[in-house]
Computed example of a mutant assay.
Amino acid sequence: MTGTESAGTAVPVRPPRGARAAKAVAAVLAAALAGVGIGEVVIRVHYPDGPPAPAAAAAAPAPSASAPAPWGAKSNGNHFGSLRDLLLPVPDGYRLGPDYKGLGNDDELGAADLERAQEELLSEMPEKYRGQLKDALGSLHFTGIGVRSLAQNDNRLTAVLKLTRFNQQTVSEQNALFGSLVDDSDLFRRGPGVPNHPDARCVLPTLDPGDRLDYLTCYSAEGDLLVQMRVSGVVPLDQNRVVDLFRQQLDRLARPGASA
């Protein structure tokens, strides 16, 4: 964990710009978690009989002995290749799901498209904070975002896997700050752990009696990638089964090389 401060250390009057940016973005991520139900797909209403099944995302080709891998992770934790290849392919029992806000259901955004992704994030914040957050986001120098939406074939849940690529130090800071904000909040229930990934975290919002949908969000730092998964599902949500999707995604990104 980097960029932390001890409880007894005096906070500088004006912290470094990078620290202010990291805290601002971590705050907006936590705020987005708190409002996880807003704007999410209401599965039984939107898809009572299930939408037409789109073609499954093609799995990344396996590297041959004579050709270098087209995607993967280097020993230093940085990833190479398409973010769509690094995303978990559509597993058995799932199909590509609905669009995730303005980011599509199976897409990769490069530098030219990141403004659209930032606007999507800004839309989740109260208007009076958007200017400050926009400045903070601009200082983080995102280089790519990949999104893949999944829908379970029985229509009981949807899941969105999202990879955000920027430098490793900032990814680590975001993950640590996000965890601190969640730990200090009573808005969430702690989800199950992710096997073989002790630094990954899954949380759920509190439920009210009679709620028909539950939500789970998982996040982790994997080198230069901040990895997130957001799930909406019919109560009761099979937490362990859903978290296994996140485990598969993290396994795919593990160093020294990702594996299909």
Rank of each mutant, 00 (worst) to 15 (best):
P126K: 05
P89F: 07
L226T: 01
N175R: 12
D135I: 11
P15W: 00
D199M: 07
A221V: 01
P51G: 05
D92F: 13
N240H: 14
C202A: 04
R44D: 12
L122W: 00
K162L: 15
P16Y: 08
L250M: 04
P236V: 02
G179N: 09
G191M: 02
F166N: 03
G18D: 11
R148P: 03
P209Q: 08
G110S: 09
P256T: 04
L216G: 07
R17V: 15
N153K: 15
D251F: 03
D106K: 05
P256S: 08
P256V: 05
G37E: 12
R148D: 07
I145A: 11
G191N: 01
V231T: 05
D238G: 08
G144W: 00
L216Y: 02
S6G: 13
A136P: 02
L121T: 10
V194K: 01
E120S: 12
I43R: 13
T164Y: 07
W71H: 10
V182M: 04
E40C: 12
R130A: 05
V160G: 03
A27Q: 09
V234G: 10
A176S: 10
N175H: 13
V41N: 07
A254W: 03
L33P: 09
V42H: 12
L109H: 09
L140T: 01
L177F: 11
E115G: 14
A258E: 13
D211K: 03
W71N: 09
D211E: 06
N78C: 15
V242K: 02
S139I: 07
S259F: 14
P209M: 08
A58V: 10
T158W: 01
A200H: 02
G193Y: 08
P51V: 06
T4N: 14
T158K: 04
D49L: 12
S185F: 01
G50Q: 08
D107T: 15
A69Q: 05
R230H: 14
L204T: 06
E40D: 12
L150Q: 04
Q248S: 12
D208H: 13
G193R: 10
G77Y: 01
I145P: 05
N78G: 15
P48Y: 05
P70I: 09
A58E: 11
D186Q: 11
F178K: 10
R190S: 13
P192C: 05
A21C: 03
E115C: 15
